[in-house]
Amino acid sequence: MNIFRLAGDLSHLAAIIILLLKIWKTRSCAGISGKSQILFALVFTTRYLDLLTSFISLYNTCMKIIYIGCAYATVHLIYMKFKATYDGNHDTFRIEFLIVPVGGLSFLVNHDFSPLEILWTFSIYLESVAILPQLFLISKTGEAETITTHYLFCLGVYRALYLFNWIWRFYFEGFFDMIAIVAGVVQTILYCDFFYLYVTKGEKVAIPS
Protein backbone atom coordinates (compact mmCIF):
# COMPACT_ATOMS: atom_id res chain seq x y z
CA MET A 1 0.00 0.00 0.00
CA ASN A 2 1.39 3.39 -0.98
CA ILE A 3 -0.05 6.90 -0.78
CA PHE A 4 -1.14 6.94 -4.45
CA ARG A 5 -2.99 3.67 -4.10
CA LEU A 6 -4.75 4.78 -0.89
CA ALA A 7 -5.65 8.20 -2.30
CA GLY A 8 -6.88 6.51 -5.50
CA ASP A 9 -9.12 4.14 -3.57
CA LEU A 10 -10.51 7.01 -1.49
CA SER A 11 -11.14 9.08 -4.60
CA HIS A 12 -12.97 6.11 -6.11
CA LEU A 13 -15.01 5.76 -2.93
CA ALA A 14 -15.77 9.50 -2.96
CA ALA A 15 -17.02 9.27 -6.55
CA ILE A 16 -19.34 6.36 -5.72
CA ILE A 17 -20.73 8.11 -2.63
CA ILE A 18 -21.12 11.49 -4.39
CA LEU A 19 -23.28 9.77 -7.01
CA LEU A 20 -25.37 7.87 -4.47
CA LEU A 21 -25.95 10.99 -2.36
CA LYS A 22 -26.77 13.13 -5.39
CA ILE A 23 -29.49 10.70 -6.47
CA TRP A 24 -30.77 10.26 -2.92
CA LYS A 25 -30.85 13.97 -1.97
CA THR A 26 -32.37 15.23 -5.24
CA ARG A 27 -34.70 12.20 -5.50
CA SER A 28 -33.65 12.10 -9.14
CA CYS A 29 -31.22 10.28 -11.38
CA ALA A 30 -31.64 12.66 -14.32
CA GLY A 31 -28.41 12.94 -16.32
CA ILE A 32 -27.01 9.68 -14.93
CA SER A 33 -26.43 6.72 -17.23
CA GLY A 34 -28.03 3.64 -15.68
CA LYS A 35 -26.13 1.59 -18.23
CA SER A 36 -22.73 2.78 -16.96
CA GLN A 37 -23.88 1.94 -13.43
CA ILE A 38 -24.96 -1.56 -14.51
CA LEU A 39 -21.52 -2.02 -16.08
CA PHE A 40 -19.78 -0.90 -12.87
CA ALA A 41 -21.92 -3.31 -10.83
CA LEU A 42 -20.89 -6.05 -13.27
CA VAL A 43 -17.23 -4.97 -12.98
CA PHE A 44 -17.23 -5.20 -9.17
CA THR A 45 -19.16 -8.47 -9.14
CA THR A 46 -16.83 -10.28 -11.55
CA ARG A 47 -13.65 -8.83 -10.01
CA TYR A 48 -14.43 -9.39 -6.35
CA LEU A 49 -15.47 -13.03 -6.59
CA ASP A 50 -12.13 -13.64 -4.85
CA LEU A 51 -13.87 -12.46 -1.68
CA LEU A 52 -15.05 -16.07 -1.52
CA THR A 53 -11.67 -17.68 -2.20
CA SER A 54 -8.88 -15.55 -0.74
CA PHE A 55 -8.30 -13.07 2.08
CA ILE A 56 -5.89 -10.21 1.39
CA SER A 57 -6.54 -7.73 4.21
CA LEU A 58 -9.39 -6.33 6.27
CA TYR A 59 -9.06 -3.07 4.31
CA ASN A 60 -9.30 -4.97 1.02
CA THR A 61 -12.34 -6.99 2.09
CA CYS A 62 -14.22 -3.99 3.52
CA MET A 63 -13.62 -1.80 0.47
CA LYS A 64 -14.73 -4.56 -1.90
CA ILE A 65 -17.96 -5.08 0.03
CA ILE A 66 -18.62 -1.31 0.14
CA TYR A 67 -17.94 -0.92 -3.62
CA ILE A 68 -20.25 -3.81 -4.53
CA GLY A 69 -22.96 -2.69 -2.11
CA CYS A 70 -22.90 0.92 -3.35
CA ALA A 71 -22.91 -0.19 -7.01
CA TYR A 72 -26.05 -2.27 -6.53
CA ALA A 73 -27.67 0.43 -4.39
CA THR A 74 -27.07 2.93 -7.22
CA VAL A 75 -28.55 0.59 -9.83
CA HIS A 76 -31.53 0.01 -7.53
CA LEU A 77 -32.15 3.75 -7.13
CA ILE A 78 -31.95 4.34 -10.89
CA TYR A 79 -34.05 1.42 -12.12
CA MET A 80 -36.47 0.94 -9.21
CA LYS A 81 -36.87 3.70 -6.66
CA PHE A 82 -36.41 6.76 -8.90
CA LYS A 83 -37.20 5.06 -12.21
CA ALA A 84 -39.58 7.90 -13.17
CA THR A 85 -36.67 10.36 -13.30
CA TYR A 86 -34.38 8.07 -15.29
CA ASP A 87 -33.28 9.57 -18.62
CA GLY A 88 -33.85 6.37 -20.62
CA ASN A 89 -34.49 8.21 -23.90
CA HIS A 90 -30.96 9.60 -23.89
CA ASP A 91 -29.23 6.60 -22.26
CA THR A 92 -29.13 4.67 -25.51
CA PHE A 93 -25.56 3.38 -25.66
CA ARG A 94 -25.60 -0.28 -26.73
CA ILE A 95 -23.71 -1.99 -23.90
CA GLU A 96 -23.57 -5.31 -25.74
CA PHE A 97 -21.09 -3.57 -28.07
CA LEU A 98 -18.80 -3.29 -25.03
CA ILE A 99 -19.59 -6.53 -23.19
CA VAL A 100 -19.19 -8.90 -26.15
CA PRO A 101 -15.76 -7.70 -27.42
CA VAL A 102 -14.48 -7.29 -23.84
CA GLY A 103 -15.68 -10.83 -23.05
CA GLY A 104 -13.90 -12.19 -26.12
CA LEU A 105 -10.69 -10.32 -25.33
CA SER A 106 -10.65 -11.60 -21.74
CA PHE A 107 -10.68 -15.16 -23.08
CA LEU A 108 -7.81 -14.40 -25.46
CA VAL A 109 -5.51 -12.20 -23.35
CA ASN A 110 -5.27 -13.18 -19.67
CA HIS A 111 -2.73 -14.28 -17.05
CA ASP A 112 -4.27 -17.72 -16.61
CA PHE A 113 -7.03 -19.62 -18.41
CA SER A 114 -9.15 -20.32 -15.35
CA PRO A 115 -12.73 -19.17 -14.61
CA LEU A 116 -11.90 -16.72 -11.79
CA GLU A 117 -8.92 -15.29 -13.67
CA ILE A 118 -10.93 -14.81 -16.88
CA LEU A 119 -13.68 -13.05 -14.92
CA TRP A 120 -11.07 -10.84 -13.22
CA THR A 121 -9.60 -9.97 -16.64
CA PHE A 122 -13.11 -9.31 -17.99
CA SER A 123 -13.73 -6.88 -15.12
CA ILE A 124 -10.45 -5.03 -15.77
CA TYR A 125 -11.20 -4.60 -19.49
CA LEU A 126 -14.84 -3.72 -18.85
CA GLU A 127 -13.99 -1.08 -16.24
CA SER A 128 -11.76 0.68 -18.75
CA VAL A 129 -14.76 1.39 -21.02
CA ALA A 130 -17.68 1.33 -18.54
CA ILE A 131 -17.91 5.14 -18.40
CA LEU A 132 -18.62 5.40 -22.15
CA PRO A 133 -22.47 5.22 -21.80
CA GLN A 134 -22.25 8.12 -19.29
CA LEU A 135 -20.09 10.25 -21.61
CA PHE A 136 -22.42 9.32 -24.49
CA LEU A 137 -25.46 10.46 -22.48
CA ILE A 138 -23.80 13.81 -21.68
CA SER A 139 -22.92 14.31 -25.35
CA LYS A 140 -26.58 13.64 -26.29
CA THR A 141 -28.16 15.94 -23.70
CA GLY A 142 -25.46 18.56 -24.24
CA GLU A 143 -24.70 19.33 -20.60
CA ALA A 144 -24.00 17.71 -17.23
CA GLU A 145 -24.99 18.96 -13.80
CA THR A 146 -22.13 20.24 -11.65
CA ILE A 147 -22.46 17.34 -9.22
CA THR A 148 -22.24 14.84 -12.09
CA THR A 149 -19.02 16.48 -13.26
CA HIS A 150 -17.64 16.17 -9.69
CA TYR A 151 -18.47 12.46 -9.84
CA LEU A 152 -16.63 12.05 -13.14
CA PHE A 153 -13.72 14.16 -11.88
CA CYS A 154 -13.26 11.91 -8.83
CA LEU A 155 -13.37 8.80 -11.04
CA GLY A 156 -10.74 10.31 -13.34
CA VAL A 157 -8.52 11.26 -10.37
CA TYR A 158 -8.80 7.68 -9.10
CA ARG A 159 -7.57 6.34 -12.45
CA ALA A 160 -4.71 8.84 -12.65
CA LEU A 161 -3.60 8.02 -9.07
CA TYR A 162 -3.58 4.31 -9.90
CA LEU A 163 -1.13 5.05 -12.73
CA PHE A 164 1.19 6.71 -10.19
CA ASN A 165 0.63 3.70 -7.89
CA TRP A 166 1.82 1.36 -10.64
CA ILE A 167 4.87 3.50 -11.37
CA TRP A 168 5.64 3.42 -7.62
CA ARG A 169 5.15 -0.35 -7.40
CA PHE A 170 7.29 -0.99 -10.46
CA TYR A 171 10.06 1.23 -9.12
CA PHE A 172 10.06 0.10 -5.48
CA GLU A 173 8.62 -3.43 -5.61
CA GLY A 174 9.47 -4.51 -9.14
CA PHE A 175 5.80 -5.36 -9.49
CA PHE A 176 3.77 -4.77 -12.61
CA ASP A 177 0.58 -6.28 -14.02
CA MET A 178 0.55 -5.56 -17.75
CA ILE A 179 -3.18 -6.26 -18.18
CA ALA A 180 -4.15 -3.83 -15.42
CA ILE A 181 -1.67 -1.20 -16.65
CA VAL A 182 -2.74 -1.22 -20.32
CA ALA A 183 -6.45 -1.18 -19.41
CA GLY A 184 -5.78 1.53 -16.83
CA VAL A 185 -3.99 3.72 -19.36
CA VAL A 186 -6.88 3.32 -21.83
CA GLN A 187 -9.36 4.21 -19.10
CA THR A 188 -7.40 7.28 -18.02
CA ILE A 189 -7.21 8.51 -21.62
CA LEU A 190 -11.02 8.36 -21.84
CA TYR A 191 -11.16 10.86 -18.97
CA CYS A 192 -8.62 13.27 -20.49
CA ASP A 193 -11.14 14.92 -22.81
CA PHE A 194 -13.49 15.33 -19.86
CA PHE A 195 -10.68 16.69 -17.63
CA TYR A 196 -9.84 19.31 -20.21
CA LEU A 197 -13.45 20.49 -20.38
CA TYR A 198 -13.83 20.36 -16.57
CA VAL A 199 -10.86 22.69 -16.12
CA THR A 200 -11.49 25.06 -19.03
CA LYS A 201 -15.28 25.38 -18.78
CA GLY A 202 -15.32 25.77 -15.00
CA GLU A 203 -17.20 22.55 -14.23
CA LYS A 204 -20.08 23.33 -16.61
CA VAL A 205 -19.23 20.51 -18.90
CA ALA A 206 -20.77 19.78 -22.24
CA ILE A 207 -19.12 17.10 -24.32
CA PRO A 208 -19.47 17.87 -28.03
CA SER A 209 -20.96 14.99 -29.99
Binding site: R5, R47, I56, Y67, D112, G174, F175, F176, D177, A180
Partner: peptide
Protein backbone atom coordinates in the same frame (compact mmCIF):
# COMPACT_ATOMS: atom_id res chain seq x y z
CA UNK B 1 4.26 -10.26 -4.19
CA UNK B 2 5.52 -10.15 -7.76
CA UNK B 3 2.83 -12.50 -9.01
CA UNK B 4 0.25 -10.72 -11.21
CA UNK B 5 -2.23 -13.46 -10.26
CA UNK B 6 -2.17 -12.17 -6.71
CA UNK B 7 -4.74 -9.40 -7.18
CA UNK B 8 -4.26 -7.22 -4.12
CA UNK B 9 -5.61 -4.05 -5.73
CA UNK B 10 -9.24 -2.96 -5.84
Amino acid sequence: SNDPLHHDEL
